[in-house]
Design a protein around this nucleic acid. Structure first.
Lengths: 238, 238
DNA sequence: TCATTTAACTTGTATTTACAAGTAAATAAT
DNA sequence: ATTATTTACTTGTAAATACAAGTTAAATGA
């Protein structure tokens, strides 16, 4: 683990309020304390409080209304960075499991890679792995990940089962995802995909190709994700 | 048309920089003028300039780097609020066309509507329309729209061909989209969808169900969108 | 009683000031 | 010539202050 840097005040308040919303202290439709109340409660000035609320708003946790206040928005449940919301069953603490199909190995980048690569990335090779994620014992995501092998010592030796790749990168290498691009398509399931996701061949699956940016400039994470959207949908905000 | 309210300074600067980026004055990878330079150029203070840049960053037009500056990010092409990016051909000024399948009509909401509705919405009924959007004469989107009939006089009489629904709402009713939720699935094309999008039956299509929030609290736009993602992908940021 | 006005809240916009922290290029020392 | 160091720039964080504008409920008027 790596020593954390000093966390700014607005970030601390953001994390506190976010946790309270996710824990149900503030429920959907509730009014958050006003900006001035938060100032007094946490000993900050209004611009600092407003920065926290602005980030919460941008990330979809609240909606702000001039003259009224900040109202808690409904809560997406996140898996990795993907949000899913069930189309049939109600939200709840579902059993979530990750299974490794191909353990992390160091290899060359595929020649027809889905995103253009820099010279540095090409030279470094990539760490490759395949996982399937289950929700209530139903396979939902088949995830193929690529990371450039830049300053990631001993990563292939680490335990990935039931632990988020993002969490390992944050705890051990202090790498955080800052954002990214994605392409979304609907494709027919190949033989391999239908086998892994327990689908019939040619059945429609969602295909996401993602490039994620990190706080380490020049280091990107790439994922090709196949989703079974028969029972669950991908949920998003814009 | 409705008289516009006063537009805040940070919004003006946002629009100027956004237009310059879209027009290619600042190209991908370029460094924007520094915050202090923008202050002098536009006669604002740094917090105001920073608010513009922060919005640009949140909307994916730039990426900020401490110590370096603001760097122009690549540009997705937008159709309505959806962004598409070609998987084969290069970006360019494509021929974009909207064709009405069902003209706007006032009707009751479907009984099994995709989102829960408020009492006010149910009472008001909805304005319904169907459109298909073409890119280079290829049908890409089949869009079914629903709007609650709240304070929208004479909307069914207006011209919708080749003009964005969002633009009409903004110009005539001063309604702006502030954000929204969406569910994404991959489904097999029905007979109607395959006919409209020139696809084989059962071929995978992307299905988006969107609820869009407006600056008018209580007024939402709903869309059910079917996308042919064979040649183009839906492009997004997170 | 009912409608209007007022007052007390809320968030939105904007200025000014100060220092911290990251980057890159010019400068000095080896 | 090469390596450190300094310096000058960049964005990040934070405070204190002021007024505008939207919302709500209490106070006031007819």
């Amino acid at each position: 683990m790596v020593a954390p840097k000093t966390i700014p005040q607005y970030r601390k308040l953001y994390e506190i309020l976010r946790k309270h919303i996710l824990d149900g202290v503030y429920k959907e439709g509730d009014l958050l304390p006003s900006e001035n109340e938060l100032c007094h409660l946490f000993g900050m000035t209004r611009p600092t409080v407003r920065q926290s609320l602005s980030t919460l708003s941008n990330n979809g946790y609240i909606r702000k209304h001039q003259g009224k206040g900040s109202i808690v928005h409904h809560l997406p449940r996140e898996i990795g960075i993907l949000s899913v919301s069930g189309t049939t069953s109600a939200l709840g603490n579902r059993n979530l499991e990750t299974r490794i199909i191909v353990k992390p190995v160091l290899m060359q980048w595929p020649s027809d890679f889905m995103f253009p690569l820099t010279e540095l990335e090409k030279e470094s090779g990539c760490i490759y792995m395949e996982r399937v994620r289950f929700l209530d014992d139903v396979p939902i995501f088949y995830d193929i990940s690529f990371i450039a092998n830049i300053n990631l010592p001993r990563i292939t030796a680490r335990q990935f089962e039931n632990r988020s790749l993002f969490q390992i990168l944050r705890d051990n290498y202090r790498i955080e995802i800052k954002g990214g691009d994605q392409r979304i398509k609907a494709i027919p399931a190949t033989a391999k995909i239908s086998r892994l996701l327990h689908l019939k061949k040619e059945q429609p699956v969602l295909h996401l190709e993602r490039k994620m940016e990190t706080n380490n400039p020049g280091l990107f994470l790439y994922s090709s994700i196949f989703c079974n959207t028969e029972k669950y949908s991908i949920f998003g905000r814009f």
